[in-house]
Design a protein around this nucleic acid. Structure first.
Length: 295
DNA sequence: AATTTGGACAACCGCCGCATT
DNA sequence: GAATGCGGCGGTTGTCCAAAT
C-alpha cells in the first residue's frame, strides 16, 4: 500500500542549513507560528525544504532557549538514571532537562555518556556528585557484567537494540552496573543511588516491609526505617526542591497519582519496566511509556 | 606537512501512533 | 472499520574538525 512521501525528495534541498534558510524559517515561525502544519510551512516560508526538515531544524536548533553542550554533572546523572530506568526514551528524558532536545541528549549519550557509563565499571575520576554515582562501588566486576548481559535473552551488552524492550534488557545490565541492586531480586529493581551513600558500599536489601503495588512497583516503607531518604539521590535530582519533579513521569509508569508519587517516590526502587512487561502476567498490559515493539 | 583516526554534532530515514475523513 | 495524513520519535548516517601518527 505505502504512503505518499511528505514531500518531493528529489526537488527539495537536503543537507546542512544555510544562515539564510535559518533566518527565513526563524522569521516566519516567530511571526506566524508553525500553523500546525509543517508540511505546508516550507512553501509559505519560501523555503525549498521538506516540512519534516524544517520541523527538526526548528526544534533542535532554532527554537529559543535551546542549550547546546555544557552538560552539568547533574544533567549527566539525570540522563543516566532515566536511561537506566526507561531506556532510550530520549524525548521523555529531554523533557526533564530544560533547554535540551531529544536529539541533543541522544547524541550526548551516544558520544560521551555511554562511554562514561562503561567506564563507571572502573571508577573514572575523583570526587563530585556525578562521579560518586558512577563510582558507587559497583558490586559486579566488568567481566561478570558482560556475562550477565550476554546471558540475558539475546540482548547484546550495552548496545542499543531495536526495541525498547530488548534495549531495556540491555539497560537492565547497564543499570546493574551503574546502580547495584538489592540482592533479593536482582532482575527486578533499578536502584537510584545516593551521593550521600558513596561511603555505603553495601546496599540495603529490599526491606521486609516493602509493599508491591498491583503495578509491580515495590515500595519500601520509610516508616519502617528500612530505607531512608538518604538512600536515593533524589535530593540531587531535585536540586533542593521538596518534591520530586518527575512525579508526573513516574506516576504514569506506576499508575500512582502524582501526589502519591511525590510523597513516596523518594523511597522507591524503580522496577525495570521491560522486565515487568516481559513477564507473562504483563504481556498484554503494556505499561505506559513503553513502546509496544516487542522483538 | 600530509594523512589517518576518532569525536562531536547535524540531519535524514523510516516507522509508529493518533486524528481525521 | 479502513484509509489517509501528519507529527513525533528513535536509530542511523553524513560531515566537519581537531588530535594523533
Amino acid at each position: 500500500m505505502g504512503r505518499a512521501p511528505c514531500c518531493d525528495k528529489a526537488s527539495v534541498k537536503k543537507g546542512p542549513w544555510s544562515p539564510e534558510e535559518d533566518a527565513k524559517l526563524k522569521a516566519y515561525i516567530e511571526e506566524n507560528g508553525t500553523g500546525g502544519n509543517w508540511i505546508a510551512l516550507p512553501q509559505k516560508a519560501g523555503l525549498n525544504r521538506c516540512g519534516k526538515s524544517c520541523r527538526l531544524r526548528w526544534l533542535n536548533y532554532l527554537r529559543p532557549d535551546i542549550k547546546h553542550g555544557g552538560y552539568t554533572e547533574q544533567e549527566d546523572h539525570i540522563i543516566c538514571s532515566l536511561y537506566s530506568s526507561i531506556g532510550s526514551r530520549w524525548s521523555i528524558i529531554a523533557s526533564k532537562l530544560p533547554g535540551r532536545t531529544d536529539n541533543d541528549v541522544k547524541n550526548y549519550w551516544n558520544t560521551k555518556l555511554k562511554k562514561k557509563a562503561m567506564g563507571a565499571v572502573q571508577p573514572p575520576r575523583g570526587a563530585g556528585a556525578g562521579a560518586r554515582a558512577f563510582s558507587a562501588a559497583p558490586a559486579t566486576p566488568p567481566d561478570t557484567v558482560q556475562s550477565q548481559c550476554t546471558s540475558s535473552a539475546q540482548a547484546p551488552a550495552l548496545s542499543p537494540a531495536s526495541s525498547s524492550v530488548t534495549s531495556s534488557s540491555g539497560d537492565a545490565c547497564f543499570a546493574t552496573t551503574m546502580y547495584p541492586q538489592p540482592t533479593t531480586s536482582p532482575q527486578q529493581y533499578i536502584r537510584f543511588d545516593a551521593p550521600a551513600a558513596a561511603s555505603q558500599t553495601e546496599l540495603p536489601p529490599v526491606p521486609p516491609t516493602a509493599t508491591v503495588t498491583p503495578d509491580g512497583c515495590n515500595w519500601a516503607s520509610t516508616e519502617a526505617g528500612a530505607v531512608s531518604l538518604d538512600d536515593v539521590f533524589l535530593g540531587e535530582l531535585t536540586a533542593g526542591e521538596q518534591l520530586f519533579p518527575y512525579a508526573d513521569l513516574f506516576s504514569s509508569f506506576t499508575g500512582l497519582p502524582e501526589s502519591k508519587a511525590n510523597l513516596e517516590l523518594s523511597a522507591c526502587y524503580f522496577p525495570n519496566m521491560a522486565e515487568m512487561w516481559a513477564a507473562s502476567d504483563h504481556a498484554h498490559a503494556k505499561p505506559q511509556g513503553l513502546c509496544n515493539t516487542l522483538t
